Simulated scan of single mutants.
Amino acid sequence: MNINEIKYRDQVIRTYIKNRNWDKNNEFLLKQKLLLNSDQLLPKYPFVVEDEWEVEFGRSDSGLGDLIFTDGNGNFAVVEIKYIDKLNSGDTASNRRTKKRQKVREQSVKYANIYRENNFVKSIKAFIFTNENSEPIKIKKVIENGKLILK
């Protein structure tokens, strides 16, 4: 992807998400917040190049990634966005939140690896953005005893 295509994609995606006023679900509002404030929240990656991208080309049933940012020099950030319901209480609600947090972490790493395999990238980082944090959280991958552990 050359810099002209990157800038074009950035302009189209930003305009679309900024002006999309009919979708008021919590997860979309988080995405909109991240995109409108990305210069402060992800300053190393000034361009957004993917929105709701197919993890496997032509197979939306295999998953859709949320956003991908780039610095324009081959460095990318895959960001998965999830809204965590903090209002419900009890063991079941707590377990659901824990599972959702783990799932979004796993998705961000999985999707970053798939994007890296299918595109020319110098580096790729996985991030999550939820309503529980004021900024995207970088996911660290650690391999212990041959098993991938997310931190």
Rank of each mutant, 00 (worst) to 15 (best):
G90T: 07
I128Q: 05
N26M: 04
R116K: 15
K147W: 01
I124L: 06
T130L: 06
N119D: 10
K7L: 09
G74C: 14
K122N: 15
E80H: 04
E132A: 09
I128R: 10
D85V: 07
F76N: 02
V48N: 05
S134V: 01
D91A: 10
L67V: 01
L64F: 06
G58E: 09
D85Y: 02
L41W: 08
D61R: 03
F76C: 03
N113L: 12
N26W: 04
Y8L: 06
I17S: 00
R97F: 06
D71I: 03
L148E: 12
K100C: 02
T15L: 13
G90L: 09
L150G: 03
K44Y: 10
N75M: 05
V55P: 06
T98F: 14
E56Q: 11
Q40T: 13
N145M: 12
I3Q: 06
R14S: 12
F47C: 03
N145R: 14
K125V: 13
Y8P: 00
E56I: 15
P136Y: 04
D10C: 11
T130Y: 08
N19I: 03
E56L: 15
M1P: 02
Q40P: 01
N95M: 14
K103S: 12
F28P: 08
S60R: 09
Y45A: 01
G72Q: 07
N19R: 11
F76D: 04
K31C: 07
V78G: 00
S123D: 12
E106R: 05
L148Q: 08
F69N: 02
D39G: 05
D71W: 08
P46Y: 05
V12W: 10
E27A: 04
